[in-house]
Amino acid sequence: MSLSEDPELQPIILGLFLSMCLVTVLGNLLIILAVSSDSHLHTPMYFFLCNLSLADIGFISTTVPKMLVNIQTHSRAISYVGCLTQKSFILIFGCMDDMLLTVMAYYRYEAICHPLQYSIIMNPCLCVFLVLMSLLFSLLESQIHNLIALYFTYFKDMEISNFFCQPSQVLSLVCFDTFMKNTVMYIVGAIYGFLPVLGIFSSYYKIVSSILRIPSSGGKYKAFSTCGSHLSVVCLFYGTAIGVYLASAVSHSPRKTTVFSVMYTVVTPMLNPFIYSVRNKDIKTSLKKL
């Protein structure tokens, strides 16, 4: 389904989303280049940030280009294989964002709550291991969704009420026992949704408890400011993601679901590099040098 049926709005939508896609890709690439070119930024925090930027590039590149082609060709069709492929990459990159935000919360917990042991705990091997585990869990979630769709469905002339193959809407078309389908989806949702959120909240609960014990107000402000960027991205990511699923569950208006999906898949990846660069002196200095 397109964002608007008005033919006069199609060129505006095309230009707007092409611009947003380019800004997202260039912004995240600049973060990666800035971190790679500056040896002072070769730390666990910026290593995770580079991987988050890669995931954001992949996330927006999975949905927007296809939509732009649809507008240009005046066709909203997508093949069965194409739909499942798009859904797979959306789940991989979306879950990578989810996992990396959780890992970054753990990193901040170690840096603030165990500063003397931090450099030993967050060694390069552990950092690489955490990123690889995030990728492995993302691939696993993608394959669970695909196995359900491949085994129980074959779509022909079906309509998806979104501008891309949104996983929850694709699986709502699956033709097998509803109870079993819902059970599988709730289990997957708990593992990949509830547990990361629980991990982030647990980390920040301990972080806030440690910060409140700092005697000087300047030390408290400095500690809180280091968490500001990450908390902003977490709120933006989970706020829009929850909005998508609540809108699809509560509202019967496909347009509202589509608007939330735009926020989740396009606006959030675009804002991430701005949030991390504006609030980070090291990144800004490195970008100026670059």
Rank of each mutant, 00 (worst) to 15 (best):
E141P: 13
L16D: 12
H114Y: 05
F260E: 01
Y118V: 11
A241Y: 00
R108M: 15
L68A: 02
H42E: 02
Q117C: 11
K87P: 11
D6T: 12
S251K: 07
K206I: 02
R255V: 06
F137A: 07
K256N: 13
P124A: 08
F274L: 06
C227K: 05
M180V: 15
I13M: 00
L126K: 00
S202C: 14
M270Y: 01
T62A: 00
K281W: 04
F194M: 04
L22Q: 02
C165G: 00
K288Q: 15
D56M: 13
P167I: 09
G189I: 02
K156F: 11
K256P: 09
I211C: 06
F89Q: 06
N182D: 10
S19P: 04
I92F: 03
S202V: 15
T265E: 02
A149M: 07
G94F: 04
P196H: 01
V233G: 13
N70Q: 13
I31N: 03
N280K: 13
I71F: 08
C175F: 11
N162H: 00
I71W: 08
Y192S: 03
I13H: 10
F137V: 13
F179L: 15
L173V: 04
S210D: 11
M263T: 05
K284I: 04
L290D: 03
H145K: 07
I112T: 13
L139Y: 07
D157A: 03
P11I: 01
C125F: 14
V170S: 05
A249M: 03
A55Y: 02
V174C: 10
Y192C: 07
T43Q: 07
V244K: 04
L29T: 04
G27S: 01
Y264R: 05
L30V: 06
L91S: 07
R255I: 12
D97H: 14
L54P: 05
H40T: 12
D98V: 08
V234D: 06
V197C: 08
M20V: 08
S19R: 02
T226R: 13
I57F: 00
Y238N: 13
V233W: 11
S88L: 06
I71G: 03
S2P: 13
V267A: 05
R255Q: 14
L54Q: 08
L173T: 01
C235L: 02
Y245I: 05
E141K: 12
G15P: 04
I13Y: 01
M263P: 05
K156C: 07
I112M: 15
Y80P: 07
L147D: 13
D38N: 13
I200C: 07
F89V: 06
N28F: 00
E159C: 04
L116R: 14
F194G: 00
F155H: 14
F164T: 10
Y186H: 05
H230S: 11
F201V: 07
P196F: 12
Y276R: 03
F47H: 06
L52H: 00
A77D: 10
G189A: 02
A55W: 00
I283F: 00
V208E: 14
L3G: 09
S37P: 00
L3Y: 01
L198Y: 12
S229V: 02
S286Q: 09
D98I: 13
I242K: 09
S36Y: 10
I60L: 10
Y264G: 03
N280V: 12
Y118I: 06
Q72A: 10
Y192E: 02
F47P: 03
T43A: 06
G94C: 05
C127T: 09
M122L: 14
Y154W: 11
D38K: 10
L195T: 14
L171I: 08
S232C: 09
C50T: 04
D6Q: 01
